[in-house]
Amino acid sequence: MILLLQTLIFGCLIGGVYALMSSGFTLIFGVMNVINLAHGFAIVLGACISWWLWQKTGLDPLLLGVGTCVVMAGVGWLLYKTVVSRVQRIDPGLTLVATFAFAMIGEGVISLIWGTGMHAETPSYFNTSYDLGSIAIPKAQLYACIGAFAVLGALFALLRGTFLGRAIRACASSRDGAELVGINVERSMAQMFALGIATTGFGGAALGVLYQFTPDSQDIWIGRVLCVVVLGGLGSLGGAAAGAVLLGLGETLTSTYWSVSWNTAVPYMLILAVLLLRPQGLFGATMRREGVKA
């Protein structure tokens, strides 16, 4: 019983980090109907920047992840302006290919700058935990989860309580209607895309603390992100959060009661099962009707 409780706690903590990693992907899809295959690259780039800053300054990598969000927002804006917006004018369906190509080029750039070796961030609390009787709560996972929910909370507040958020939701409902009420749709799309990629700043920092990574780790992480959004229903932030927790629980239960070597396969098995049994996602029936929904 203690082992099961420990496993469930660990799975929920990991799920909180997965929720943040997937939020930007589902936000972009919900508003723009774009499947951004460069999202895994963005997560790894965020991890590399956070790792590099940690090496240079010695500051807590999760705190550095907050600043990395700003850098990644710039990367997102650049990706939208140079690739996504231009390709959309030609053929919206080509954005899938274009973002994949951007991710492959980005992987090569990361390899040239930071090398192809394994990287990881090991702050002082990396291997420590809070002990509650027989239950151990790892500090790294706890801090990463708290930080992830803080960033998610800021994202929800921005979408619900600011003019930018209202403009994004208006564009998700009807771009033509948004233009009629004076919203600059193109500018709102660029800001929204930058916002979606900005979340990978802290997500990447958390990745570097919790896991080792290499430039080609983006393949693993885009798989996890796709699993989360398919589980929760494409375009739903709330569904993505629920799907992330389910994935985290699935991975931890698999590694505890079956084998760690099957962890990589869990996301793809879940994707296949959901696509076969409930293509709209486990929470998609009520969450996908109005574009992006918090």
Rank of each mutant, 00 (worst) to 15 (best):
L4P: 04
T7K: 00
L13A: 01
G16H: 03
L20T: 05
M21S: 13
T26Y: 10
V34P: 03
N36G: 08
N36K: 10
A42M: 15
A42R: 04
A42Y: 11
A42W: 00
L45N: 02
L45W: 01
C48E: 13
I49M: 12
W51N: 13
Q55H: 10
G58S: 10
V66H: 04
V70F: 15
V84E: 05
I90W: 13
M104S: 11
G106Q: 04
E107F: 04
I110P: 01
S111V: 00
W114R: 01
G117Y: 06
P123K: 03
Y125E: 03
Y125M: 00
S129E: 01
P138N: 10
L142R: 02
C145M: 15
G147H: 03
V151S: 01
L152Q: 06
L152P: 01
L155E: 00
L164Q: 08
I168T: 15
R175F: 00
D176N: 13
G177V: 01
E179V: 07
V181K: 02
Q191E: 09
F193T: 05
F193Y: 14
I197Q: 03
G203D: 09
A205D: 09
V209F: 09
Y211W: 12
D219A: 14
V225M: 13
L231N: 07
G233S: 07
S236A: 10
A244W: 12
L246W: 04
L253A: 12
V260W: 10
Y268N: 04
A273G: 07
L276S: 13
P279Q: 09
P279I: 09
A285T: 12
V292L: 03
